[in-house]
């Protein structure tokens, strides 16, 4: 099976000379389709940097990122935007919904960019919001939803365009532990039913328990890669 994500000697440095910080140093990972992978490590270990580089949101100093065998550093700005739009779903720590759009409109946003017809957009949005337990709250603005509900909308937004990969940076960090566990269970269910590849970062041991693969990072380097039975 072709890997959906592959990094080769990936490095990201900040600063220079005495102030050089190696946020990521020679990282090589391979993630197969459908995996539910957690990037784990203490704060400042390089988890977010790795996810940013995988998602094409930042440029590495050296090394390559291949997504479905395509090297993203060779893509133009527009190609990379289109690739992210069509193949990657993002879930952010702080929900990051567009505040002037309703829950349904936030979910619809990517499909609008993709040019999906209105009827299909509506059907998929309402179905996805129902799946994440937000039936009846479609027209609410983000500030009319709780933190947990906003993160559910963010999950729905990431998944509704049916991307190949979902990247989530500490998606439960701003939620209470129960809501965080519920959200992760929901993501795991979607992973199993929809077959999407999930890569998320966390330093919460309870969350780690739900992952089928743990990639441990410390000081910008992968120190352990363990696969677990589901």
């Amino acid at each position: 099976m072709k890997p959906v994500i592959e990094t080769r000697n990936l490095s990201r440095h900040y600063g220079a000379g005495d102030t050089l910080v190696k946020a990521l140093d020679d990282v090589n990972i391979v993630i197969e389709p459908g995996e539910f992978t957690a990037i784990v490590g203490p704060s400042g270990s390089g988890k977010s940097t790795l996810l940013q580089l995988i998602g094409g949101l930042d440029i590495p100093n050296s090394g390559k990122v291949l997504l479905s065998d395509k090297e993203i550093s060779e893509m133009s700005g527009s190609e990379l935007s289109d690739f992210r739009r069509d193949h990657i779903g993002f879930i952010f720590q702080a929900y990051n919904l567009i505040p002037v759009l309703s829950a349904a409109e936030n979910c619809e946003y990517i499909m609008l960019l993709q040019g999906i017809p209105a009827a299909e957009r509506k059907e998929r949005v309402y179905k996805m919001l129902a799946e994440v337990g937000l039936e009846g709250r479609e027209t609410r603005l983000p500030n009319q939803l709780s933190g947990g509900q906003q993160q559910r909308v963010a999950v729905a937004r990431a998944m509704v365009s049916q991307p190949d990969i979902i990247l989530a940076d500490e998606p439960t960090a701003n939620l209470d532990s129960q809501t965080g566990m519920d959200l992760l269970d929901m993501m795991h269910d979607l992973n199993r039913h929809e077959g999407m590849t999930f890569v998320f970062s966390t330093h919460d041991p309870k969350i780690m328990e739900r992952a089928s693969r743990l990639i441990h990072i410390e000081d910008g380097r992968v120190i352990k890669d363990e696969r677990r039975e589901d």
Partner: peptide
């Protein structure tokens, strides 16, 4: 932050 999000999720510059 918002522009960062919409560019990240696939909005062209």
């Amino acid at each position: 932050y918002e522009f960062g999000v919409i560019i990240a999720i696939g909005t062209r510059r």
